[in-house]
Every structure is written in structure tokens, then in C-alpha cells.
Simulated scan of single mutants.
Amino acid sequence: MTDQQSSAAEPTQLTPMPEDWQRALAVVAHPDDLEYGCAGAIAAWTDAGREVVYVLATRGEAGIDTLAPAEAAPLREREQRASAAIVGVDTVEFLDHKDGVIEYGIALRRDIAAAIRKHKPELVITLNHRDTWGGVAWNTPDHVAVGRATLDAASDAGNRWIFPELSEQGLEPWDGVRWVAVAGTNAPTHAVDATPGLERAIQSLLEHRAYIEVLTDEDPEKYCRTFLTGFAEQLAPRFGGKPAVAFEVFSR
């Protein structure tokens, strides 16, 4: 093999996530979205004294086939709050858009921009906004809508002439978002060492037990451990041999 062929075979290395920030806001569609991808990174960040707030567009009320939405919503909210607490997140807010039929548009952008103005993050985190997961599985409309709206709202939040009604409500423009980090992407650019937070990430996902028990016949703890460990280890060759949580980072 030539040097050129050897070089071409080496995986592209991921860059460590920026660390010069103090506040992050994670915006996703459903309870469990963060636990299926980046809770391990969030655990590491809160360990370091950083503040992370969760904002969920829905309460996940359409996510359990065996439970009517009115029963599922409070259950999934409780599971999400318990899940967040395990990785050091105290504040979990819900925007109350309707699960399964979230619409990308002005109302969603406004709600997310309001959350950004309220919490003043330097880092915003969201989930895969593209049509597919790696080109092999179709993404859900909720994920696409919320991910895309979050990317847009990071700019909206800093422009006083977009959603001026927010200023009237006491939410002044916030142009301090420096990065938007997308989890669950097939085009990651950055990563965080998953090792310190991996066990808590597993326990955090396991808190969504009512959802998981309907999703799979496998033992819930085995399912969570296998899923998260497998994904973290897949990224190790691209992050100095360390299991990793990956993000596609858009700078602003």
C-alpha cells in the first residue's frame, strides 16, 4: 500500500468541542431525544461547572402506543425530568407543541428564540435536522422541524426586529450564541470524550423506562448499555481511540 493509499484509509479525526463557554441550551422535539445521543457529553459539561438547560418542543405524548396521549404526557415529562437530573440538568422546559405533527414555521422559531433570549446560552444543542439518519433511515418530521428551527432561531434571537413582541415581554435580544451543535448527525466535526459520562448517560436513558419497555423486548438496561456504548465506541477511531459523543458544529 502506498503512503497516499494509507492516508486515504485513515478516518477523519474529530476536533474536541469548544470549552470556552459557560451556558448551553439543548432544544429537541421529544423526551429521550437527548438521551439517545449526547447525555454523556452533558454529564461531562455539568461536572465541569457549566450550566445546561433542556427545552423540549413536546411532552412526547404520542410516543407510547399503549398509552393515550393524556396519560403518556405527564408520565414522559416525569421520566424526562428524572433523566435530566442524572446528568446534572435542573431546568427542563416544555413548549407544548403537539407530538408527531410539529410544524416548522414562525411559531416554532419564535418559541425557540424566546427560550434562547431567556436563557442566554453561548452553545445551543439540537438533534439531526436532515431528512435521514446517515442516508439509511428516514428521520421524523418532528426532528427535522425542531432541528432546523433551532438553527434559525439562534440568529432570530439576536435580531430585535424579528419577533419584536418578545422584547415587549421582557425578552431582550441575545446575540451571544457562538455555536450550534447538532447531535445524531452523519457529518460530525467535533466530539467529547464519552468515558467520564457514559455510565450516567446509560442511567439517564434508562429513566425512560415506560417508553423503552414498549420499544423493545430486550432487558431495558442491556438495551441502553448496548446502544450507547456501541455508538460511542464506533467513534473511537476518529477521536484518538477514545469513545466519543459527536456533534456537527456550526459557528456563528
Rank of each mutant, 00 (worst) to 15 (best):
M1K: 09
D3E: 15
S7E: 14
A8D: 15
T12L: 13
T15A: 06
P18R: 01
P18H: 06
E19Y: 04
Q22H: 14
R23W: 07
A24V: 06
H30D: 09
G37C: 14
C38A: 10
D47I: 04
Y54D: 00
V55L: 10
L56W: 03
A57R: 07
E61L: 01
T66E: 12
A68G: 13
P69T: 07
E71H: 05
A72T: 04
A73N: 02
E79W: 00
S83Y: 11
A84K: 03
A85R: 13
D96M: 06
G100R: 08
R110G: 08
R110T: 13
D111E: 15
A113K: 08
A115Q: 13
I116P: 07
I116A: 05
K118I: 00
H119M: 07
L123F: 04
R130K: 13
G135N: 11
V136P: 04
A137F: 15
T140Y: 03
P141L: 10
R148G: 02
S155G: 13
A157Y: 01
W161A: 10
I162K: 03
P164M: 01
G176K: 01
V177R: 04
W179A: 07
A183V: 05
H190W: 11
R200K: 14
E207F: 07
E207N: 12
V214S: 14
T216K: 02
E218A: 15
Y223L: 04
Y223R: 03
A232D: 08
A236T: 08
P237C: 03
R238W: 01
P243T: 08
